[in-house]
Design a protein around this nucleic acid. Structure first.
Ligand SMILES: [Zn+2]
Length: 364
DNA sequence: CGCTTTTGACCCGCGC
DNA sequence: GCGCGGGTCAAAAGCG
């Protein structure tokens, strides 16, 4: 038996909750890649959210994607840049000038905001690094203390000495309690074999499941030597255009800025849910946390399944009326209302960014 | 030459 | 204990 709650993540944007939502997860739930990363997803890349190759995507779009803020003010928006005809009355001439001045201001402000955003991103990474270092230190102290009080525990001492190549010991505390089992899975329509998420992954296995003829691929994060993050990529059985990516664990290293949004969102969401710091799932979704961060570009649904053994946060980026089928049957059918809200923001699907990944055979 | 992918073997928990 | 199925290892192959 499993409980599953499906809620629409597509609530109206509520910028006031911006800072509050992240802090809602408790102080230690530093919403970075610490826990699960989703690190979660393009025909050859139709859902490449976090391609590190910025050339492939228009920069303003990337900014907008990562922050949920639509800072992209096209310079040649016809609604702003008036195209006055040959007979400009002095009045209209004036109006035009005024508008152009306005436009200049906005462009300038836009540039400034972008700069700030970049700065913010850098600061964020720096802070994250510092935080991780602190956590490491704290862990060392903690275990040292334990050792003094309880000398029979040789194992822990070993963990202190061992290089951080031991995943479980090194990252246990970083992940925080209750977060280790966290999983975040992302469903997205994509013909690509893998959705790029800003991280580097090395494939370490592939299996074909029992019921599902589609092979499931296993990846490990290679951005840092000891990064424990893993992900599974599998095509949905009944609808092969849907790619399901499941992330597990948290990064022990800074992520490239484009990847931060996704990792932050997923891990923080997982943290909140699993730690119970967000009183209700409704609270999580109502805080508009998910939709503001990564989902403004499509109609969306956040599903949080409390099923054993791993609590899983599912971000559904699909438009499909299909039910999941992989993890569970969804209780309530999707309310029809959640598509309309974002229609004004990004009307179309994300561009087809390419994922740098290759093949995908099958076995067994 | 250093990386990733491939792929069968191996491990381990679970139900019988 | 045994078989099964999901997950991982690691040797070999592939690739730029
Ligand atoms: Zn990582």
């Amino acid at each position: 038996m499993e409980k599953s709650v499906a809620l629409s993540g597509a609530l109206p944007r509520n910028d006031a909750t911006d800072s509050g939502a992240g802090a809602g997860g408790g102080m230690l739930d530093f919403p970075i890649s610490l826990v699960s990363s989703v690190d979660s997803r393009p025909v050859v890349g139709e859902m490449d959210f976090f391609s590190r190759e910025k050339k492939l995507l228009p920069a303003p779009a990337a900014v907008s994607l990562a922050t949920g803020l639509d800072l992209n003010i096209p310079k040649e928006d016809p609604s702003i840049a008036l195209t006055v005809d040959n007979d400009p009355s002095p009045d209209e001439e004036k109006k035009k000038e005024k508008t152009e001045v306005e436009l200049g201001k906005m462009t300038e402000e836009n540039r400034r905001l972008k700069g700030m955003l970049t700065q913010l991103s850098h600061n964020y990474n720096a802070l994250q690094t510092h935080f991780i270092a602190l956590m490491q230190h704290q862990r060392d102290l903690h275990e040292l203390h334990d050792d003094e009080n309880d000398k029979k525990n040789v194992k822990e001492r070993l963990f202190d000495i061992l290089p951080a190549t031991d995943d479980t010991s090194a990252n246990y505390d970083i992940a925080g309690d209750g977060n280790r089992k966290a999983r975040v899975s992302v469903r997205a329509r994509s013909e690509a074999h893998m959705i790029s998420d800003g991280c580097q992954w090395r494939k370490y296995g592939q299996k074909v499941g029992k019921g599902n003829p589609c092979p499931r691929a296993y990846y490990r994060c290679t951005m840092a030597a000891a990064c424990p993050v893993r992900k599974q990529v599998q095509r949905c059985a009944e609808d092969r255009s849907v790619l399901i990516t499941t992330y597990e664990g948290s990064h022990n290293h800074p992520l490239p800025p484009p990847a931060v949004a996704m990792a932050t969102t997923t891990s923080a969401a997982a943290s909140m849910v699993l730690s119970g710091s967000m009183p209700t799932i409704e609270g999580l979704v109502a805080s508009n946390f998910l939709s503001r961060t990564i989902l403004p570009c499509s109609s969306t649904m956040a599903t949080i399944a409390v099923s054993a053994p791993f609590p899983t946060v599912t971000l559904d980026l699909t438009h499909s009326p299909h039910l999941t089928g992989t993890t569970s049957s969804r209780s309530p059918p999707l309310p029809p209302f959640d598509h309309s809200f974002f229609s004004g923001l990004h009307s179309s699907a994300p561009p087809a960014w390419a994922a740098p990944h290759k093949s995908y055979g099958s076995k067994s």
